[in-house]
Design a binder for these strands. Structure first.
Length: 274
DNA sequence: TTTATAACCTGAACGC
DNA sequence: TGCGTTCAGGTTATAA
């Protein structure tokens, strides 16, 4: 499920219940996620106080004085704040009981997510091997039209594929890549190296706008993280192209085209996007 | 170095 | 109703 806005919404949703709390018990029910959840997680995290939760790309970093728990939600992961007495259901893989009497529960049917313990030095500098080659945050100042123009010059790949390359910019998944390219009026299959600086300015601005709007929309659902039923905190996207192949373009009314690009469903308007 | 493809899993939706 | 097929919002490893 989660793209960057959902991960950020998750962070904001659980932080009030987790920040400042000590972890009294860690229960790993299923350790075979994207990478194995090792014993060091429970050993190191138990007894620690979580000082804050940061986000880098789609990773959540639970900071403690002794290191950090680094978590990725993969394609189907979610977190909820629950009463520890609530029995686990299928795919509830990890529980973290807090000294508040509540519990943070990790659920992930497809098990594409991951949970690591990282030592204090790596945690302080974000030098973990999964973090240290990531591109800039899309909502930060380092991400701009000038940056995109610069990194695209020698590339012979479609602009949408480049936008989803986490080494160049993090957090732009399939949904928001489609949406941002529509907003910027750029065809997803246009080669990255052939797009002008001015158009990259529009694209960078569109990426920021689309992501910020989605994060804002997530704000209305924060309370869902403490509900027992249903999946937490995800919101209905207001999407203009994704999932709408064949339907009329919201701008010109022509049917939206759907193609496969780098194995991912890609939707665009052949008239509005050039 | 850049790009393409396979792989990790399960579940939902769809067609027959 | 049941079964097989396809697809899913992520990311890395490996091959070309």
């Amino acid at each position: 499920m989660p793209e960057l806005p959902e991960v950020e919404t998750t962070r904001r949703g659980i932080e009030p219940f987790v920040k400042g709390r000590r972890v009294t018990q860690v229960l790993v029910r299923e350790s075979s996620l994207r990478w194995p959840v090792t014993d060091s997680l429970a050993q190191s995290l138990t007894g620690q106080r979580i000082e804050r939760i940061d986000r880098r790309a789609k990773y959540l970093l639970f900071r403690t004085g002794a290191g950090s728990m680094m978590m990725h939600l993969g394609m189907s992961g979610s977190l909820r704040i629950l009463d520890p007495a609530i029995p686990p259901r299928a795919h509830d893989h990890v529980d973290m009981v807090l000294d508040s009497g509540r519990m943070l529960r990790y659920t992930d049917p497809r098990r594409f997510g991951s949970i690591f313990w990282i030592d204090p030095d790596s945690a302080a500098t974000d030098s973990h091997w999964l973090l240290n080659e990531l591109g800039p945050e899309p909502l930060g100042e380092a991400f701009s039209g000038a940056y995109l123009f610069d990194v695209s010059r020698a590339r012979k790949v479609a602009v949408k594929t480049m936008l989803m390359n986490s080494h160049l910019v993090v957090g732009v998944g399939n949904i928001y890549a489609n949406e941002a390219l529509f907003a910027a009026g750029i065809r997803p299959d246009r080669l990255a190296g052939t797009i002008s600086r001015a158009r990259y300015d529009r694209l960078a601005e569109a990426v920021k706008r689309v992501l910020a709007k989605a994060i804002e929309a997530g704000g209305t659902t924060l309370r869902d993280f403490v509900r027992e039923d249903g999946s937490p905190g995800y919101f209905r996207h207001e999407l203009e192209v994704y999932g709408r192949g064949g339907e009329p373009c919201v701008t010109c009314g022509r049917p939206l085209r759907e193609i496969r690009l780098a194995q991912r469903t890609t939707v665009f308007c052949a008239r509005c996007q050039r």
